[in-house]
Design a protein around this nucleic acid. Structure first.
Ligand SMILES: [Mn+2]
Ligand SMILES: [Mn+2]
Ligand SMILES: [Zn+2]
Ligand SMILES: [Zn+2]
Lengths: 148, 148
DNA sequence: TCTTTGTTGATAATTATTATTATTTATTTT
DNA sequence: AAAATAAATAATAATAATTATCAACAAAGA
C-alpha cells in the first residue's frame, strides 16, 4: 500500500495541518508499517535518511496527529505508547512474547458486540467505542500469525 | 465487602508469600477499593496510618503480588499502571473524562466472544485471554455508572 | 519587505517505575 | 536462647519514556 507524496500532503492539509517535511515523513512511516511502532522506533527509522530530525519533534508531531484524528495512540501492557495509522475501528492481538501488535478486524464480531450493547445499556455513560484486546503467544515466533 | 485480617493472612500465605504488615495493608487497600488505583494512590492511602512505608515497597510488593497471581496489573490509556484485586476474568469501562475504571462482567457477552473464537481460529497463536475495553464518558460525573 | 505566527531542534525537566544497598525483621540452625 | 541465615523494607539513586522550554528557523499574511 504505497502512498504517494501527494496523498500524504492532502491528508495532512485535510486535517488542518501545515505540510512540513517532518510531518510528511513521520506520517509516511506510519502508513508504510503495520507494526504499531513506538515514537523511538519511528525516530530511528527516520534518522537514517534525515539525521537532523529530533526525537522531541517526533513525539510532538505524533501528539498533534492524534489530536487531529490522523492516527491513534495505543498503550501496551509494558507501559509505553505505540502509534497506529489505521483509523477504522479494529482490534489488536498482542503477543506477550514478541511484543508484536497485530491488527484484527472482523465484521461479524463487531456486529455481535454492537448488538449486545444495543440490548445491554450502561447508564449515565456515553459509550464511545469498545475494543477487544486479545493476548497470547505466538507458537512459532519466526512465522506470522494468520487469521483464517 | 470487609475482609478480616485472618482472611488476608491466609490469602497471602496461600500464594506462597510471607505475611508482613506492609503486604497485609497493601492487599487490604486493594480489596477494599474498586477504583483500580495506581501505586501512588495506594501509597497515599496507606501513609496516613503507616507513615513509615516506602513507595518503593509499594511498587515492589504489587509486582510480587502480580507474579504470584494475587492481583492484576492493568494499563490505562494515559500510560500509567493500575492494580486490580479482582481476579476473575472481566472487562473494564474507562471514563476518558474522570479517568475512572469500572468493572464490567457479563456472562452472556463472555459466551458470545468465546463462542466466536471457537469458530474463528487464529493460526500460529496460542490465545490466552481477551478483554473488552469499553471507553466513553460519564454523563453526570457526580453520579455512578450503572449497568442494568 | 516587515510582521506575525507556527514549527523545529536542542536541551532541560518531569513522571512513572525499577535498581541498589544498608538496615530491619523474620526464620532456621546450633 | 543465641548465633547465623535469609528475606523484606526504607531510603535513595538510577532509568526510561515523555513532556516542557525556548531560541532559531520557516512559512504566511499584510
Ligand atoms: Mn489499531
Ligand atoms: Mn480488572
Ligand atoms: Zn492497528
Ligand atoms: Zn477490575
Amino acid at each position: 500500500m504505497l502512498k504517494d507524496l501527494q496523498y500524504i500532503k492532502q491528508t495532512l492539509a485535510g486535517h488542518g495541518l501545515k505540510v512540513t517535511h517532518q510531518r510528511m515523513v513521520i506520517y509516511q512511516v506510519l502508513q508504510e508499517t503495520d507494526t504499531h511502532p513506538a515514537a523511538e522506533g519511528i525516530y530511528e527509522k527516520i534518522k537514517k535518511k534525515n539525521p537532523s530530525i529530533s526525537l522531541g519533534t517526533v513525539y510532538k508531531t505524533l501528539e498533534v496527529f492524534v489530536e487531529k484524528g490522523l492516527i491513534k495512540k495505543i498503550n501496551t501492557s509494558e507501559g509505553n505508547m505505540r502509534y497506529d495509522a489505521r483509523m477504522d475501528i479494529h482490534n489488536h492481538i498482542y503477543c506477550t512474547n514478541t511484543k508484536e501488535i497485530i491488527d484484527f478486524k472482523d465484521d461479524e464480531l463487531d456486529m455481535l458486540v454492537r448488538d449486545f450493547f444495543k440490548r445491554k445499556k450502561i447508564g449515565n455513560f456515553n459509550l464511545k467505542e469498545f475494543r477487544l484486546h486479545i493476548s497470547g503467544e505466538k507458537i512459532d515466533p519466526g512465522k506470522h500469525i494468520e487469521i483464517t
